[in-house]
Design a protein around this nucleic acid. Structure first.
Lengths: 131, 131, 131, 131
DNA sequence: GTGGTCTAGACCACG
DNA sequence: GTGGTCTAGACCACG
């Protein structure tokens, strides 16, 4: 796997794991239906606790990113990731709010901010070949 | 004050406080040099512990938003908020990354995302009359 | 641990703790990567409140002396302590200034003063075997 | 007066005042027998509390820097400042200890440190013409 | 009155 | 078990 964790970060490990896997999906390293390692093997691989992997997987399942079959194991959701709904967009807005608030204080212009976002979007497109 | 906390939220109270004060600065409800309530009075006002307020104030001081002045008490930094530097922008990028990553997965287009950001920027401009 | 606090001193306990740990590093009793006791166990050991230990640890982390690691717990920074930069030297100068100022008033000669410093340096070298 | 205070500093104002006056003596801007402003006038001059000036003066008197006559007012001690005794030197050593300790950690060499001290000494000599 | 420091005690998220 | 957060309450130095 391509998982890269920072054990010194304030961000909990399970959250980092979730982010990394979502990033894998965004970059199409992980496609719908693709298998993910079992809780046990991923934990062993990265050298973290079973609970931690499990917590990340449960959250990803909850959010519609993965399916956990008793037997087939863990797979990226075969139907694709659920499209953004109103709830997602409102949560997204809530998360963006403090970032934009502080940026305004620090004299980051709207143009700069949008360009930064745009740049991040393009990084995904490049990796997926969707340019 | 205009502080509005959500005690049910997972976001720690001191973090919410920080966000609210930064928002106040962004919306120019708080201007450079303006006085902020003392640790004690704000704590009493909101009905939280003074240590919690103190933690928020210490962080804001660290980040250059406020000064804790021997005589004047706590004030919004009279020289204005430090402009975004490389460190800030790189942290900002790190925070935006997972948001954009998940948005890509959920088929939020770049245009939609930028528009959402733009809309948030305009909310600040409207409130400050900087339109 | 080798921590030795003076509860009668005007110096806050958390500051004393910081000094003691830095001294431990200077004397190489604590080496990069070495584990430090947890907040709780150190507090219990010394017989002080865990918040006091925590305050010291947070400061030491801030200053690059220690890492608070998700898995390993608290350790002396494995990459070694950050070398003195301009900021450190200017702060050091500010701290030395009043000491030298008063010494000048009290007719301590430059030679005496330097010798005193030199002696203190040698105490560290002796303990570390770096003579 | 040449007093220069930093109200944002963590250093209490009365301590800053003490340092400034001692510095004045070290630089011979203030000579034995010279008059100092009254508590009241100095406080008014700098714009600080009477108590604060008084506290600084009491400490300076205690340390042998000044005399406080009921009628003649405040003067730099006419007999000159008491020479450093064992107590002073031991306190000085205690204050230098953590500075050197941290410097050792941060790879400041003995030579660099001594040179910094030397430089500070020379700043006093230059100002007094004692070069 | 104000911030700084310290304590005792509690709950929770994380691993 | 560990650090993070929060509370209630207390004393002190400072101004």
């Amino acid at each position: 796997m391509f998982i890269n964790l920072d054990f010194e970060s304030k961000e909990p490990i399970y959250v980092q794991l979730i982010h990394q896997i979502i990033e894998g999906v965004a970059k199409k390293k992980l496609q719908p239906g693709d298998a993910l390692p079992s809780v046990r093997s991923l934990a062993a691989d990265i050298g973290i606790n079973l609970h931690t992997v499990n917590k990340a997987y449960q959250q990803l399942k909850q959010d519609g990113f993965i399916l956990i079959h008793r037997q087939k194991g863990v797979v990226v959701h075969p139907d694709g990731i659920p499209k953004a709904d109103k709830v997602y967009k409102s949560v997204l807005k809530e998360k963006l709010h403090p970032l934009i608030s502080e940026s305004v204080c620090r004299s980051v212009t709207e143009e700069e901010f949008l360009q930064l976002c745009s740049q991040l979007f393009h990084e995904f497109k490049e990796e997926t070949g969707d340019v």
